[in-house]
C-alpha cells in the first residue's frame, strides 16, 4: 500500500496526470492519509498561488472561472481547478456539474479540473481539499483555483486556504441574502458582481460597500468588480485585480508558506489525537476509568490525568 502511494507520488511529480488523479482519489477517500502524504510533500510545496472563488448557487462561479482561465494563462503556465460541491447528507452521493461550464480550455494539457463532493464536511470544502491543493502545488501547478459554494459564514474556511478569496454575487444580492451578509462580507479580498447587466447592480454595489465598511481591522479595503461572465465583460479587469492582489502578496510568499506548514502540522496532529482518542475510548482501561465511582473532586482530577497519560503514551508509540 505504502509502496503504491510512493510510486504514484513519484509518477505524479513527473507530471503523470493519471497518477495525480489517482492520488487525489486516495486523498479524498482518507483525509488522514491525505495529510500524511502532504507531510511528505512539504519540501516541494509553497510555489503556487491559491485563488478561492466562492458565492451563492447560481452566481456564475464556474462561468467566471471558465472566462478567467484563458486570461490567467498569460501569467500562469498552467491552472488547476478544484470544484467542490455539497454531498447529499442522506446518501453521501453528489452531483458534480461544474466541469460542464469549464470548457474553454477543454483540450488543453494546461488545465486540470477536479470535481469534489464535500463528503459530509461543513464549511464549503471537503476534508481533503487542502491536501489536494498541496499535491497540485508540489506537482507544479502554479495557479490553483478552488471553487466552493458559499452562502454565509462558511466560506471563512476557504479564506484560510486561499491566498486570495473572490466572492461572487449578483445584482439583488442584498435582498436575497440579508441574513448572511455579515459572513459573506468578512471573507473576501475581492468582490465580483457578476451578471451586472441585470437590474439592481448599482444598489447592490452600494449595499456591498456599506457592509464592507462595517468590518474593522482590514489591511486592505476589498475591491468590487463588475462582470458579465458569459459575454467576457469585465473579465480582464477582474484578472488584473486578482493578479495585483497576488503580486502584493508575492513578497509575503515565505509567510504564506509558513502559514500553510503550520496549518498542516496542526491538522495532522489533531487527526492523530482524534484517531488515538477513537481507539482509546474503546479500550477496557478507558471504559474502566470513566465508569468509576467518583466521591471527591481530587478523584476526578486523578482519573483525567490517567486518561491524558494513556493518550500521550498512545501518541508517543506511533
Amino acid at each position: 500500500m505504502n509502496q503504491d502511494i510512493s510510486d504514484l507520488l513519484q509518477r505524479a511529480l513527473k507530471d503523470d496526470r493519471a497518477a495525480l488523479a489517482r492520488l487525489l482519489s486516495i486523498m479524498e477517500n482518507n483525509s488522514v492519509l491525505a495529510a500524511e502524504i502532504e507531510l511528505s510533500l512539504l519540501p516541494s510545496m509553497g510555489k503556487s498561488f491559491v485563488v478561492g472563488i466562492t458565492g451563492p448557487p447560481g452566481a456564475g462561479k464556474s462561468s467566471l472561472i471558465n472566462a478567467l482561465i484563458p486570461i490567467a494563462a498569460k501569467d500562469f503556465d498552467r491552472t488547476a481547478v478544484i470544484a467542490v460541491d455539497p454531498s447529499s447528507t442522506f446518501s453521501q452521493g453528489a452531483l458534480l456539474g461544474d466541469r460542464v461550464r469549464m470548457n474553454s480550455y477543454n483540450h488543453s494539457e494546461k488545465l486540470f479540473v477536479r470535481s469534489m463532493g464535500s463528503r459530509g464536511n461543513l464549511g464549503g470544502l471537503a476534508r481533503s481539499t487542502v491536501s489536494a491543493v498541496s499535491l497540485f502545488d508540489s506537482c507544479n501547478w502554479p495557479l490553483i483555483i478552488i471553487e466552493t459554494l458559499g452562502i454565509g459564514q462558511i466560506e471563512l474556511e476557504i479564506a484560510e486556504v486561499a491566498d486570495i478569496t473572490v466572492v461572487v454575487l449578483n445584482p439583488g444580492w442584498g435582498d436575497t441574502f440579508q441574513a448572511n451578509k455579515a459572513g459573506i462580507t468578512e471573507s473576501g479580498d475581492i468582490y465580483v458582481i457578476n451578471k451586472s447587466d441585470r437590474p439592481g447592480v448599482h444598489k447592490t454595489r452600494i449595499e456591498l460597500e456599506e457592509s464592507l465598511a462595517l468590518i474593522p481591522h482590514r489591511s486592505r479595503v476589498p475591491q468590487i468588480v463588475e462582470t458579465i461572465a458569459n459575454t467576457d465583460t469585465g473579465i480582464v479587469g477582474l484578472w488584473h485585480t486578482i493578479a495585483e492582489s497576488l503580486d502584493s502578496k508575492n513578497t509575503d510568499l515565505k509567510q504564506i508558506r509558513e502559514l500553510r506548514q503550520q496549518q498542516l502540522f496542526h491538522r495532522l496532529v489533531s487527526f492523530k489525537i482524534e484517531q488515538a482518542l477513537g481507539v482509546a475510548t474503546k479500550s477496557s482501561l478507558w471504559k474502566n476509568i470513566v465508569s468509576q465511582n467518583i466521591e471527591n473532586p481530587e478523584d476526578a482530577r486523578d482519573l483525567l490525568d490517567n486518561l491524558l497519560l494513556d493518550i500521550s503514551t498512545r501518541l508517543r508509540n506511533y
Binding site: S63, L95, G97, V100, N230, T233
Partner: peptide
C-alpha cells in the same frame, strides 16, 4: 455580439 447563455442547471 451577444455572448453565451448561462445554463442554470446541471446537465
Amino acid at each position: 455580439a451577444f455572448g453565451d447563455w448561462d445554463v442554470p442547471i446541471q446537465l
